[in-house]
Amino acid sequence: MSDTFEIQIENVSKNFDDQPILGDVNFGIRKGEFLSIVGPSGCGKSTLLRMIAGLEQPTTGKIEINRKVTSRQQIAFVFQEANLLPWLNAFENVALPFRITKQAVDTNLVAETLELVGIQEQDFRKLPKQLSGGMKMRVSIARALVLRPKILLLDEPFAALDDLLRTQLDQELVKIWGRDKLTVLFVTHNISEAIFISQKVAVMQTGPGRIRQTIDIPFAIPRENQIKTTTEFAKCFATVSAALEGSARDLGKTDQAQAQNDDTGLPSNSGGASNSIGELP
């Protein structure tokens, strides 16, 4: 594999019960790149991410991770739910990866990581039931970052949060990415979020899932929330939407395509994306 790619996916397909979910996916992610994957639900974007994390095995093809990433511990995964252990407080939840992998807990690093994601010291000893949804997600991200991974995989991590909080967490995630020089793969169904957060957006299509198009996002980093109202942003949005719409049209069945549209947050309906884009031509 070429050294420029941190993750290389070659001819990967995946079947569930003989039902093809992913068919022949090919792409690479460069070291230090922030890439988002958008696509209609059921296109296998989560499955692809889970295969990179090693939670699933591809039916055919191979996924290669850069040789310098020596162990599974250097690939972190953030789930859609916070998945905190309810009997452990925030601090202990973040310390958990040390304990599972039988390493000595680096308490300074745990505290530092918690502060990095915006959890204050007085909240370290709080149980998950005492934390809000946004805070739980922050703790979950801290847990993923605590072993200092090189690759960060996120599976719709902020889908359950409100728009304002999501934008805030998006920005913080970008900051962490810049600071730690991570390679980030971010799965979302929110186009606006994908454009706002990443350098590249990969659009997936269904039946079976594959990468339809990869779109470069031109904005400099760090990004302010205001860019969402610029024409440039609208153009990106239109490009991604068109790619997505095309992928939905490929299904052939209009009713099903309509259902997919509803799910992907296209301009025609509500969702996080429509806020900034509603009045555009």
Binding site: A53, G54, L55, R72, Q73, F77, F79, E81, N83, L85, P97, I100, T101
Partner: peptide, 11 residues
């Protein structure tokens, strides 16, 4: 979800 978390770290 918690089960997968442990799988992720090769517990």
């Amino acid at each position: 979800g918690l089960f997968e978390l442990f799988r992720l770290y090769n517990a």
